[in-house]
């Protein structure tokens, strides 16, 4: 519950502050969001399983974002940025689906 309030606070700050994203950052933003979503789903699943830990959540969130952005950056430097983005998104999306399936099993027992 408190986490959802945090999410809404972040959204509100973004709308009010209206930050401008530097151009060099723009390719990494969608990747960072998918990585963050992966951490969120993993955290939610752990919450459902009563073994959530905020330290692991924060570390997994930061490392996911940093590694995903680094992979895409590396891909850009090697000239395979688009393929690298695709690979990162595929793996993260797979994890998101797996976690969502676990959450679904717990919530609906189905």
């Amino acid at each position: 519950m408190i986490a959802i309030i945090g999410l809404l606070v972040g959204v509100a700050i973004g709308i009010l502050w209206h930050p401008v994203v530097p151009l060099w950052m723009q390719p990494y933003l969608p990747i960072a969001i998918v990585a963050a979503l992966d951490a969120v789903f993993g955290g939610f699943r752990a919450l459902m399983e009563k073994r959530f830990d905020d330290r692991i959540f924060v570390v997994s969130f930061l490392s996911n974002v940093v590694i995903a952005a680094f992979l895409v950056f590396l891909g850009d430097q090697l000239g395979v940025g688009a393929q690298m983005s695709t690979g990162v998104v595929v793996v993260l999306a797979m994890r998101i689906f797996a976690n969502a399936a676990a959450i679904r099993r717990i919530l609906f027992r189905a």
Partner: peptide, 21 residues
């Protein structure tokens, strides 16, 4: 749960910034 809140704030910010840009 304490540390998770700022992380969620950052995530919300990230998403809205991406949408806006």
């Amino acid at each position: 749960h304490l540390l998770a809140v700022p992380a969620m704030v950052v995530i919300g910010l990230l998403i809205i910034v991406a949408v806006i840009s």
